[in-house]
Nucleic acid binder design. Structure first.
Ligand SMILES: [Mn+2]
Ligand SMILES: [Mn+2]
Ligand SMILES: [Zn+2]
Ligand SMILES: [Zn+2]
Lengths: 142, 142
DNA sequence: CAATCATTGCAACATTGTTGCGTTTATTTA
DNA sequence: TAAATAAACGCAACAATGTTGCAATGATTG
């Protein structure tokens, strides 16, 4: 309860600070992501939202897009065609790698992994960013 | 014409060698991939197939799956939710990174990029493989 | 409180890939 | 070469994930 209220207020503050409209949907969504240490899918976010809050699929998609635009969250691609979302902490402001369990599909950020090395490209190619996913078995699955 | 026939015969040989049935579909598909230096999508393969060969979407999907199982091709994930396929050469037998242009979506293999370093994981996690995509602008787009 | 316009809900659509099943065909066997 | 067989195929239906258009709602401001 107490934790929830704290997260709720944190989320509200972050959203208000970003200059958008403060809606209960956005607050609840960001709260869910702040409470989670993993990167989770649209579906998983839906399941973690309070039952009392009825929220359309599309609204959830648009809220997530908005939160990502405002740099409050980031989204990660995966081989199962589903984006995964995670709240931004200070650690996450720079580029970082991710780990995905090939058995349970859980995905975590690997904040310690330095990936800022120079990646040599063919002549004429210009580097923008890197996407790195280590795959294997998580502690629970191995 | 000559090139085509040569690829065609190479493809046929590879397929026969893999112990499956040698069908015109599989030969044509593998020929397309052998002729291509980029990793291309299901859709793009479809477009490159000869008009004379009518081939069902599903058959193409299943042929690609079979070719990948036999290690004649490999498939690469992307942020646009579409697998990309590429013929296996000797270079590609080991793990390698890929480059994807953020403007034209072309994707190439970065065979020179050594990614076999040790990636430190949290305790209890077990490494299996790594997926690395460098994003930026290709020579044509930059 | 009223005005405004960002946000939402709903229906429809798009894309990519998968599954079930009856038919065809490549290969083997006689 | 002809028949038998199992693999491969075509078709229809389905599934998962995400997007678009538009009218209704509601957060914010004055
Ligand atoms: Mn992350
Ligand atoms: Mn490759
Ligand atoms: Zn796991
Ligand atoms: Zn390009």
């Amino acid at each position: 309860m107490f934790m929830f209220n704290k997260l709720h207020r944190t989320a509200e503050e972050l959203i208000r600070h970003s200059g958008g409209r403060v809606t209960v949907g956005r607050i609840r969504i960001l709260s869910v992501l702040l409470a989670e240490q993993q990167a989770i899918t649209h579906r998983e976010i839906e399941q973690r939202l309070p039952q009392t809050l009825q929220l359309d699929r599309v609204t959830l998609y648009r809220a997530l897009e908005w939160l990502a635009d405002k740099n409050l969250i980031h989204k990660v691609t995966s081989d199962d065609r589903a984006w995964r979302y995670h709240a931004n902490r200070e650690l996450h402001t720079h580029q970082h790698a991710h780990f995905k369990c090939t058995r349970c599909a859980q995905m975590i950020c690997l904040d310690d992994l330095p990936i800022e090395r120079s990646w040599p490209l063919p002549a004429g190619y210009r580097f923008q960013e890197i996407e790195l996913t280590v795959k294997g078995l998580c502690a629970d699955c191995s």
